[in-house]
Design a protein around this nucleic acid. Structure first.
Length: 464
RNA sequence: GCCCCCAUCGUCUAGCGGCCUAGGACGGUUCCUUCUCAAGGAACAAAUCGUCGGUCCGAAUCCGACUGGGGGUACCA
């Protein structure tokens, strides 16, 4: 049997959540390792939280990240449609089937009654659960009320005795007492399924073999197990990966951290670096190295080695990983990544290729290119510190006679400093300020070589 | 409240009963290199393996309790 995995994001955010990217990567790696398929299914069943354009963002971020899918709403596939809002009749049929054989029932309770019920339960320190009022309605009566158009939902009929157990691929056996499982709503009054019905039906119908999702879903898994049993379906393999956390240890949230993939893209992170970092959050490379490609990961990936502890998303380490990738990139790739990232960079390949060796090892993100290299393109408006007129004048004279190579220029600067009894360090700093406008940056003389004699001396002369 | 998951340096982790006086990486500190900043090299600091009990000749590794952290408790996913 071919392995089929999936992610099922709901289009309720601005973009692909980094946590979704993390589970997507793991799902994708497992499928690829076994020559299977990784699919994307959009779970747009919450009409109130739907965000315009979210689905497109999710799909494009997934593509940008380099996590390709075999089937999805954008490219179709043998199990289309891949958008739950387009599969409504299916859920209704399955829910009705459950009602017919007693595993679910119609519920006519209003929102206000449910709210009151919960308040009472809370006051009495009871777990907030549906009290089963509508379960007592005779099936014929319930059917008549539905036929008459009364507003209703369909709830699953959870047995009130026994234990539901499942084996998590990375956590082992997990059990829940049935009496603590709520009679979950399966079909909402607007005709849309809840997550629980939708996910079970579609995972079955789409032949998903491995469900890999965040650990926040562990408590609802017994409901899903029960549904598989009610339907008489085989239960797929299930694994819950840890959630990513904020530095304060709470679940990663947009209030405390950037959570959208586009945030990281905008900050100048590379997709391969993000994938590498995310992979390291979930799993350790067998030989302990921190830098590895997704292809290398696929080669040695083992589900049972997935982490059980929820890691803190460490932006510093991500920056380091990104820097490693930038340093190891070939010039052409880095060049085009930069052009795509920052529109201010002129598409002058020859010039870019002369600048890159000077700045690439100083960058941790693509965004840092401009802060490091803008002086190559724009005359610095003013320096951070005032330049010494006398030193600048002497430098201009000395350099105007020097051969325009960094070696010769260095000789000339050092000779001047010696002759005048100035500290070479100070002279270099004056020159740096005059040329680049900053106290830090790429190697000065090499930079001046790129800038050219005329431009360099021109900048220097402004301070004379 | 109730249910569930988790627990090794600040952070990410290696470790799956003896190889551990606990190894690596990020970050930090110091030094080398050096025209600045990086990168690179060297070194240092940093974990009584959450606590307490067991099991065992032997436990970071197995079991239990507790504590701590996290998650879930919706006609949200």
């Amino acid at each position: 049997m071919t392995i089929r995995t999936r992610i099922a994001p709901s289009p309720t955010g601005l973009d692909l959540h980094i946590g979704n990217a993390y589970t997507a990567l793991i799902n994708s790696v497992l499928a690829r390792k076994h020559g299977g398929q990784f699919i994307v299914r959009i779970e747009d069943t919450d009409r109130t939280r739907l965000v315009e354009g979210s689905e497109q963002k999710i799909l494009s971020s997934l593509a940008w990240l380099g996590i390709p899918h075999a089937e999805g709403p954008d490219i179709g596939g043998p199990y289309a449609p891949y958008r739950q809002s387009e599969r409504l009749p299916s859920y209704k049929t399955y829910a009705e089937e459950l009602v017919a054989n007693g595993h679910a029932y119609y519920c006519f309770c209003t929102a206000s009654r449910l709210e009151e019920m919960r308040k009472t339960q809370e006051a009495n320190k009871l777990p907030p659960m549906y009290d089963g009022l509508c379960k007592a309605i005779a099936p014929d009566d319930a059917r008549k009320r539905v036929a008459a158009g009364e507003r209703h939902v369909i709830r699953m009929n959870v047995p009130d005795t026994g234990v539901t157990t499942f084996t998590d691929l990375i956590r082992g056996e997990i059990s829940f007492e049935n009496k603590l499982i709520d009679d979950q709503v399966l079909l909402k009054s607007d005709g849309y399924p809840t997550y629980h019905l939708g996910v079970v039906v579609d995972d079955h119908v789409m032949n998903i073999t491995h469900i890999i999702r965040g650990e926040e879903w562990i408590p609802s898994t017994p409901k899903h197990i029960l549904l598989y049993r009610f339907f008489g379906w085989d239960i797929p393999n299930i694994a819950h990966v840890s959630v990513l956390r904020n530095p304060d240890r709470s679940k990663l949230s947009k209030r405390k951290n950037p959570v959208w993939v586009s945030d990281y893209r905008a900050k100048g992170f590379l997709p391969e670096a993000i994938r590498n970092y995310l992979a390291g959050m979930a799993w350790s490379y067998p030989d302990g190295r921190d830098i590895f490609s997704t292809e290398e990961m696929i080669g040695v990936f083992d589900m049972s080695q997935l982490k059980t502890t929820a890691p803190i998303f460490d932006t510093e380490k991500l920056r380091w990983v990104n820097g490693e990738y930038i340093r190891n990139m070939d010039a052409a790739s880095l060049r085009s990544a930069l052009y795509a990232f920052d529109s201010r960079i002129p598409h002058d390949d020859a010039l870019t290729d002369r600048i890159l060796p000077l700045v690439a090892e100083r960058m941790k993100t693509l965004a840092e290119f401009w802060t490091l290299a803008s002086f190559f393109y724009e005359k610095p408006a003013e320096t951070e510190k005032p330049c010494d007129r006398n030193i600048c004048a002497e430098l201009a004279t000395a350099l105007s006679h020097a051969e325009w190579t960094h070696g010769a220029m260095e000789q000339s600067v050092r000779t001047l400093a010696d002759a005048k009894g100035w500290k070479a360090k100070d002279v270099f700093m004056q020159l740096r300020l005059a040329i680049t406008g900053k106290t830090v940056g790429p190697p000065l003389l090499e930079s001046m070589e790129v800038l050219g004699k005329e431009e360099s001396l021109g900048r220097l002369s402004r301070y004379i």
